[in-house]
Design a binder for these strands. Structure first.
Lengths: 126, 126, 126, 126
DNA sequence: GTGGTCTAGACCACG
DNA sequence: GTGGTCTAGACCACC
């Protein structure tokens, strides 16, 4: 099982699924053309409702990261570069960095932690 | 006015207040022992509901970043008393990094962007 | 009532809602800044489920045509030009034009019908 | 081969077949009385399920565009027998036009695009 | 009050 | 089998 869902998390379940699938694609664990688990299958595995998974898949389809074919499942899209809003990313980053600074982390430590996470994500790449 | 509230932002207003206050403390603009504006005062200045500000203060108190004294306002706590959940920070980081990777950013670019934001936050230091 | 929903239509209800709201914005009947009916209100008016309307609103938010604010309803976004996929539009157009040609319509008649519809949509504009 | 089926298209395959056959008749490439390829033949050529083609043929028969004779294949009908639901065509047109208007297209541009597509369809005429 | 999320369970469309 | 849509009804988050 590559995906998990935690109902007690702050993030809604469908968003957790989106984030994890995006991570798997970023990592290369899921390659373009690879099939995603069926909506029903994943819902059963995670113990959540079918609709919750369907919403996650629809979101990913809207981003262009996966392509859904009626009656034949969903697959990772041929790698197009995703758009992303740099301004928004910076805004998301600020509170996280603030927290780390308040925890007494040095710049060196913060950059180190970031590199670790980058490596964790990219590590699986084929 | 060091704080602003933008109702058209994606973040809820109380969260915006929390983030900005945290950033001010991280930057050193607000020092341990400094008083926060009163809930009424800040609510009036921002033109938001009094409850909204109160929730923000309670959140910061929960983090240990400020200490609320009944009837005597809130003050920034000593740095020692703050908690830091590294696991949570990493979890917040992963979706952001995944998006940047999918957008084709190199590690170098990502680290560069992070350093810029670190500098922005720390730059304000008195 | 400016919006209607027909469960017997080929289009799913949420799509009908999306299309009609888009049309109202294109017509200028709904101006930037105007509030949309609340999810619950519109659902009650149309006699459909709350979720069905919520899906429609989420879709419009994703397109950037409306902005949803938690706890404070949805409003038409300040007019940014929408992106659109010309290739896709052409592909949608072909079957429609084929049908009209098969019905014996001349080019003149087809263009006339198109101009009529354009006028119908744009007519309400302030 | 005048027809193709693209499983990665948004349209369902049976619909692609319907649209293409209709276009061929509109263009005059298929004339009244001409036989359609057999269901088995077309399914084999396109590499799709036999049922999928059968559904497409049934749809065209329902429109009155072709006539299916048991055991003797399908033929394009005389032009007279075709129905045309103008109201439906207008309803299909509105969402497309709305999108183009919101994309900032002028009436001139929209009519121009339509004329191009009309010409593309009619150009094939024998 | 508002919108957001989730569930359980139903029925339909596609191949 | 697959995904798509819808319902009824619940509970939560924001202001």
């Amino acid at each position: 099982m590559l995906i998990s869902a935690d109902p007690s998390d702050d993030q809604p379940i469908y968003q957790q699924i989106v984030d994890q699938l995006r991570q798997l694609v970023a990592a290369g664990t899921l390659q373009p053309g690879d099939p995603l688990p069926s909506v029903r299958q994943l819902a059963a595995d995670l113990g959540v409702n079918l609709n919750t998974v369907a919403i996650a898949y629809r979101e990913l389809a809207g981003e262009g990261l996966v392509k859904i074919k009626h009656g034949r499942g969903a697959r990772v899209t041929a790698a197009r570069e995703q758009r992303f809003d740099e301004e928004q990313v910076r805004k998301l980053l600020v509170p996280i960095l603030s927290k780390m600074i308040l925890a007494g982390k040095t710049d060196r430590e913060i950059v180190g932690l970031l590199r670790e996470e980058l490596h964790n994500i990219r590590g699986d790449k084929t």
